[in-house]
Design a binder for these strands. Structure first.
Lengths: 236, 236
DNA sequence: TATGCGCAGATCGTATACGATCCCGTTCTT
DNA sequence: AAGAACGGGATCGTATACGATCTGCGCATA
């Protein structure tokens, strides 16, 4: 992977490379939908899997919780986050505001090499789709959005987009409605075209529509899913 | 169905209340400009000051680093973040995009009680200003922005605004140019008026101008850091 | 049979110990 | 005298130990 500049969105690099490994492994597993929302994440168990001590695992879990993909309850432990409908709406509302702006900024800065990288990413995404590797395609689709944010050269946006994409992955796994070849939309390709021609406004428009389309694929209605604690119901 | 959901912006509450105490104390000290950007934050020393073990201090520092107000370098330790000019621009770019939208959303939801709370906050801010307590006024100004984001009821935005406001505080301490009664602008009052009349577009416009005004007060040219002795600042 | 108590087992919270790394002042070499 | 090698002190990185808390299950009891 080419790093154009210091990977701008890279949130707080975990101080230790070993903790970072656990962090990435868990994040990948979550983005991949190998770990479903609500899955418990006991420190010991994770440590055993990755050969790390609880100290490192804990550090990784805390980092993930800061990004909203893991939920930690005191004295109860960590679990894969389980976004509510309200949170889901909030995430996509933010994406709809931020990402078009990011796309416009990226259009003004994308070099040939950037475009090539993006194209390769889309290529990989399509390949994964045709191979039936849906989960992998979703992950790649996410990295595409992150790559654009990195190109935009705005570290704050890059961090936000990273977080939003990760949370979106959880939301999709909970609330996605269309089962068929969902992400088959040509939006990413269209986006690259706009970026390649430095057409900021068009890039923004395409991005906006693309995300609106994503939202359209969601079924944002609360499922029973979680055993909404009795207390909540009684007090509410 | 407006259930008093947990303060929406409250990022991952640190699991332990004791770590949270350290976290808040440090954050307050930073927002207050008692700890200047670049100040080193050795785990032992902080632990001694607050009577906490390194474990807890470390947890607090990591949380702060996730919010971008503390910078951690592997094997080197933590220091108060020292935003570059580029980062500073990026932070305010994001604020300029996000906060008007947040203000508009808040306008649609602000109840009487919310307005009263905001008014009290502005009151306190002015009081602090007149009492010459500039630092306190800046902090209150920040909480005002955060309060609006909480009213908007969008948890994602609330978290972002929290982070942006905190980072802005650092930026201001590094790059603020006008020395005189800076925040004396009536913007906050005007904003409340717009919110009280549910005038979303106007709230957005006021907010946008307000932040543009803030940016205008910045002198975004690189300077260099200054060190300080720690224990004194923390106790003060 | 239904209810409540109490005891494991699992898991987390926290402190602390020990080794690793880095910084910086000192000394040795040329 | 300038530069390199070296060592001491400070600080961090990591593992682990021990106590606290929670959960679930079995048993006593009505």
């Amino acid at each position: 992977m080419l790093k154009t500049e210091r990977s701008s969105g890279e949130r707080s690099a975990l101080r230790s490379p070993r903790a970072a490994t656990v962090y990435r492994a868990l994040l990948d597993a979550i983005l991949d939908h190998r770990l479903a929302p609500g899955t418990r994440l006991p420190e010991d168990e994770i440590g055993a899997v990755y050969g790390a001590s609880r100290t490192l695992v804990r550090s990784a879990l805390e980092a993930l919780s800061h990004e909203g993909v893991v939920h930690i309850e005191p004295n109860r432990g960590a679990m894969v986050a389980h976004p509510t409908v309200h949170e889901a709406r909030s995430v996509f509302e933010a994406r709809q505001l931020i990402e078009p702006r990011v796309a416009a900024a990226a259009a003004g800065r994308a070099g040939e090499k950037d475009i090539a990288t993006l194209a390769a990413s889309v290529e990989a995404e399509h390949a994964a789709l045709h191979a039936g590797e849906h989960r992998r395609a979703i992950v790649l689709s996410g990295t595409f959005h992150i790559a654009i944010a990195d190109i935009a050269g705005q570290p704050v946006y890059a961090g936000f987009v990273r977080e939003l994409v990760a949370r979106s992955s959880l939301i999709i796994s909970l609330y996605w409605r269309r089962r068929e070849a969902t992400c088959g939309s040509p939006a990413h390709g269209t986006l690259i075209a706009a970026l390649a021609t430095q057409d900021g406004p068009r890039a923004a428009a395409v991005m906006e529509e693309h995300i609106a389309d994503l939202v359209g694929g969601l079924d944002l209605v609360e499922r029973e899913a979680r055993p909404a604690s009795l207390a909540d119901l009684l007090v509410g």
